[in-house]
């Protein structure tokens, strides 16, 4: 018996991949969330500002009409402000150093069998797993 969460996960995954396919086949770009946002933050993507802004607007706005009709997905983010700030900084620095995150290296990289994408994915999942052991099971912070 496959759990319902897994089916919704797969369906959502297909939509994510479809979004990436549109961005690639129509706009000719790799859909990486950190790259699209990062290019605006550090100014390296100024030639394609509106394309980036439009993409980000789509990401932020799309869940709004779905929220009331779909089984409500609440967040379980920690209330520990220090942890949130540290996590945000690490994600920001890390994804820009690595030139990609779960969407760019994960979804778009693995699907083209990119060595860099696969390597990045192994390292960030590994680091995430170790972080869980350390901060949840050893230190009990999260």
């Amino acid at each position: 018996m496959i759990e319902q969460d897994w089916i919704w996960g797969f369906v959502g995954g297909l939509l994510i991949g479809l979004g990436g396919a549109v961005y690639l086949l129509v706009n000719g770009r790799v859909m990486g969330a950190s790259g699209i946002v990062g290019g605006l933050v550090d100014g390296s993507g100024m030639r394609t500002v509106w394309e980036r802004v439009a993409f980000i607007a789509g990401v932020i706005l799309a869940p709004i009409p779905i929220y009331p009709i779909y089984r409500t997905v609440e967040t379980h983010i920690t209330s520990n402000v220090a942890v949130i700030i540290a996590a945000g900084l690490l994600v920001g620095i890390g994804t820009r150093l690595a030139n990609g995150c779960t969407s760019g290296h994960g979804v778009c990289g693995i699907s083209r069998l990119s060595l860099r994408g696969i390597t990045a994915t192994v390292f960030y999942i590994g680091a995430g797993g170790i972080t869980m052991v350390l901060f949840r099971h050893v230190l009990g912070v999260i």
Binding site: A33, S34, V37, V59, H76, I77, T78, V83, I84, A86, A87, G88, L89, L90, V91, G92, I93, G94, T95, R96, L97, A98, N99, C101, T102, S103, H105, T119, A120, T121, F123, Y124, I125, G126, A127, G128, G129, I130, T131, M132, F135, I142
Partner: peptide, 17 residues
């Protein structure tokens, strides 16, 4: 970069998208 990202990802449970 990927190691730092993974640490932050684990701490908060959020990535950029």
């Amino acid at each position: 970069g990927s190691v730092l990202f993974g640490m932050g990802w684990g701490l908060a449970g959020l990535c950029p998208g």
